[in-house]
């Protein structure tokens, strides 16, 4: 049979334990913060894009595929995403002085249903760019279908935003499209890009 004698508390040892605990917790918190920072840095890392001819510069996410060969100034796609590739696209359209934003979007809306499946405009409303510039935002949906009919692909419902800003005799349309299931999560990429956009 063992006898345990409880003596008075050793204040020094207790302080050391407490300090050790605090340091451990602090280290974990710092580690977590550092990890989160690294993660954010990796996910939201950007690289610059400049187009002198179009007068556009911005920072876009690293490892998004940059494409300038279409009828747009630039198109960026997140090729690492599984499923519909989240897309940001910038288009310049000539716009007469007397043309309203609605006129420009009407023209867009007339031709889009011929190219996008089940195209449906949800809303057209005022929008303020991060730098305070007044703009118009159109929200729409469509069903993305694989053009290669030899593949069996389930169509994806896509939500799109067109943010239209006027620049003299031009209209700048910044388009954001994402799978409806991941739209809110992906929106941060678009907002960060808009924040860095100069035109």
């Amino acid at each position: 049979m063992a006898v345990i004698e409880i003596l008075g508390r050793d204040e020094r040892t207790e302080r050391q334990f407490r300090l050790g605990h605090l340091l451990t917790v602090a280290l974990i918190v710092v580690g977590l913060l550092y990890g989160l920072n690294l993660r954010d840095g990796a996910i939201f890392a950007t690289q610059p894009y400049n187009n002198v001819r179009a007068g556009i510069s911005m920072d876009y996410p690293v490892a998004w595929l940059l494409d300038t060969d279409g009828d747009y100034v630039v198109r960026l796609r997140d090729m690492r995403r599984i499923g519909y590739k989240t897309t940001i696209q910038i288009t310049l359209a000539p716009a007469g002085g007397s043309a309203s934003n609605r006129n420009i979007l009407d023209v867009v809306n007339i031709s889009r249903p011929l190219r996008l499946n089940s195209y449906d405009v949800q809303a057209i409303e005022p929008y303020t760019m991060p730098d305070g510039t007044a703009a118009t935002r159109m929200t729409y949906t469509f069903v993305d279908d694989e053009p290669n009919k030899f593949l069996q692909t389930v169509p994806v419902v896509v939500i799109g935003w067109d943010v239209l800003v006027r620049r003299g005799e031009q209209a700048l349309i910044v388009t954001f499209r994402s799978d409806a299931n991941t739209f809110d999560a992906d929106l941060v990429f678009f907002e960060r890009l808009l924040s860095s956009l100069e035109f």
């Binding site: 595929l65 494409d67 300038t68 060969d69 590739k85 694989e146 593949l151 069996q152």
Partner: peptide, 22 residues
């Protein structure tokens, strides 16, 4: 550097994971 000009072809897998190069 994730520039489309560097790409030969991109294929995306279908619902069965099957892909074809165009």
């Amino acid at each position: 550097v994730w520039n489309n000009d560097q790409v030969h072809v991109i294929a995306t897998s279908d619902s069965n994971g099957y892909f074809q190069l165009d």
